[in-house]
Design a protein around this nucleic acid. Sequence first.
DNA 1: CGCGAGCTTGACGTTGTTCAACTAGAGTGG
DNA 2: CCACTCTAGTTGAACAACGTCAAGCTCGCG
Lengths: 230, 230
Amino acid sequence: MARTIKKLSCQDCIYKLHCFHKLTSEELDLIDSNRVELTYRKGEIICKQGSFASNILHVSEGFSKIYIEHNDKNLILKVVSSKDLIGLPSIFNNNVFHYSVGALTDISVCSINTSIIVNLIRENSSFAENIIAEINKNMVQYFDRFISLTQKQSHGRIADAILHLSNDVFFSQEFEMPITRKDLAELTGMSTENVIRILKELNNDRILSIDNKKIKILSPELLHKLSEFG
Amino acid sequence: MARTIKKLSCQDCIYKLHCFHKLTSEELDLIDSNRVELTYRKGEIICKQGSFASNILHVSEGFSKIYIEHNDKNLILKVVSSKDLIGLPSIFNNNVFHYSVGALTDISVCSINTSIIVNLIRENSSFAENIIAEINKNMVQYFDRFISLTQKQSHGRIADAILHLSNDVFFSQEFEMPITRKDLAELTGMSTENVIRILKELNNDRILSIDNKKIKILSPELLHKLSEFG
DNA sequence: CGCGAGCTTGACGTTGTTCAACTAGAGTGG
DNA sequence: CCACTCTAGTTGAACAACGTCAAGCTCGCG
């Protein structure tokens, strides 16, 4: 499950991670020498909600999901992209993971000790700024999800989920989902059966073209309308 | 609506605001001399979602609500207590309010220019830490609300709303709500009528004692059970 | 005294869940 | 190579939870 061969350097990832931009090359080297590269297989759990958050993670390859567990039911907050850091909400806040993270595909993960990040926050105020910016960006993203799941009916929620995948994860109108119908259900807060029924409708109405996991957005306009008023 | 007579000093509020603890007295004076005290009447809007967030606010007296507007329907994120700062999610993040804030009662508000806070974050890393801690604390609180509104049925959601008021706002098992049934509906993501029906049930089942706006928690155990499994 | 806002109640309709059954494909072992 | 099993996906029918609508109530205020 875990290997410690380093294939990448932090310089390779810097363009993905906005909050690393303001680090000096010495600071980046500090991170580089205090991280491990791990690989996980599809289905494995990377962080367990409630466990000690001694590391901040970055998924450099593959896809994963951030989800909250509650009474055997999960709520997926987001599908993680390579622009995301995992574990920021735990900083200065109990040092416990407030969500779980699971691998949707085989993935490569960089694990950086939280204390390193904390020291950089203390010593480099521009980095602290960027961390705050990052946390706040996520906060607002979660606000949108909050609205989606509490104020919209199923069609709107599915539209939001598809748009999230298209805009934040795959950066394309056409993609192959690494997630199951059940995951889609946990992303939209509804039952698997209902997800299937609504995907079928969207397919019939030629808003999406769906072939199992392959999704193509045929009518972005209608999809946005569904998201807005659904 | 707004008066600029200063009745308080920041020293009076410091015990309420955890993230001010690490400020030196000079820094506190800096805030003190760069803030205005305002009063708002019940029903007035303090921040409008989407407007420029040039100030961070602190409600020193009275009650207010933070809510997200979407298509003429509101979702109340929380009822603000004197321990809360308003506007943190806007820092380093568009400088736009991502939610609206409304006065539930007549209130007194301190308004501090965001640039002052930003400078302090840059210059005092302990303060930056505390700001991050504060933002993250809110994030986790919102996670709980997220679970409440998406995974629980009405009884559980009402239980959560009552517990929020009791634990985070009034710090008592018995309180007089400053909010209407409609507000309760917007706090729980359900219809006003349903709120009323469920409050009545909880009253009949002797879990709560409800006399119009006066609420007394009779059985905290059952209320927690509802919150957990409702 | 009358008006309006907030509150309450009952009847009814809709949305979405649950349950049960069935299908398809992938992996396993004889 | 063929059962067997397991998981994911799909479908239909019954049901429950909740929202909507319409009406009436209460109380504070002008």
